[in-house]
């Protein structure tokens, strides 16, 4: 027992002395591989994708970490397509330089992508995103008369507020065969519910906007309505939980995606007539 206590003290005393003499600080969390910061998103609205990338610096005054030899690629896990990205030095708004990686492709709705950063064929940092799947549109019967006519929509499956919502009306002016698409901007309308995303389409007001766009007066009756569609920009899940970085491995910042949803539906013929259009929709 006594020997045990002595042994313990013999170990403890040098340990305490060593600790007392040690005056070093390790301010950085140790990591075996480079930690990257990436900021960007895959964008269905364009054929060119851009993501900013930098290596984490040990302090604020450090020079940017060299990204020489860094390889970036994306893999489309839905169809297996691999795209290699190329680096590009960009001049930012404040005149400083940054490094962006660029690739030419357009992501697809509902596809899952991984964004891989590494060196010598070894992936060191990874980010994943799934471009939102197209929602199912559930239109209600239009209600109201003339300029007050509205239609309630539910976009089933959406978990986040879409943005840049537009209604696209394909119409032919009186006595013309050529079709025109009139776009009516809705901004960021509606609200999220348990069912998905819900909003009201103001069909009556939209008609006046269409007439105005075609240069017609408000009593014009013989416009043919061929097609009704909605276009909305959809955000991936990552946009809802900024700061969580749940989709990043050995990486920090933000990586997400946005999809562009185009979806149409038929408006009831009697409602089209009440609006003052001639119904020329191709019924499914």
């Amino acid at each position: 027992m006594k020997r045990g206590i002595l042994s313990y003290l013999c170990c403890l005393v040098p340990l305490v002395l060593f600790q007392a003499c040690d005056n070093t600080i390790e301010p950085l969390v140790e990591s075996e591989s480079t930690n990257f910061a990436l900021h960007g998103y895959l964008d269905m609205r364009t054929d060119q994708q851009i993501v900013r990338l930098e290596g984490l610096r040990p302090n604020i005054l450090s020079e940017p970490v060299s990204l020489e030899g860094v390889e970036v690629s994306t893999i489309d896990h839905t169809d297996g397509t691999v795209v290699i990205w190329r680096d590009s030095i960009i001049t930012l708004d404040n005149g400083t330089l940054g490094t962006a990686f660029v690739a030419n492709f357009r992501p697809d709705l509902g596809h899952e992508y991984s964004f891989n950063v590494g060196r010598n064929g070894v992936t060191e940092g990874r980010a994943t995103t799934r471009v939102p799947a197209p929602p199912v549109v559930l239109p209600a019967t239009p209600v109201g008369e003339s300029e007050n006519m509205k239609q309630h929509l539910v976009l089933i499956g959406l978990k986040d507020q879409p943005t840049k919502v537009h209604m696209l009306y394909e119409v032919s002016p009186p006595n013309e065969t050529e079709r025109q698409v009139i776009s009516v901007a809705y901004g960021d309308p509606g609200f999220l519910s348990n069912a998905g995303w819900e909003l009201e389409i103001s069909l009556g007001i939209d008609r006046f906007i269409i007439l105005n766009a075609l240069g017609l007066d408000s009593v014009t009756q013989d416009i043919r309505l061929h097609n009704v569609e909605m276009r909305a920009t959809l955000f991936s899940e990552e946009w809802q939980t900024q700061g969580s970085e749940f989709n990043l491995e050995n990486a920090h910042g933000f990586f997400g995606s946005i999809g562009v949803f185009d979806g149409g539906w038929d408006i009831d013929s009697s409602a089209v007539r009440k609006l003052g259009f001639i119904d020329n929709q191709q019924r499914n």
Binding site: L28, S31, N35, A37, L56, N59, I60, S62, H252, G253
Partner: peptide
């Protein structure tokens, strides 16, 4: 402890 610095 710090992981490092980036431009956020």
């Amino acid at each position: 402890e710090s992981l490092g610095f980036d431009r956020w």
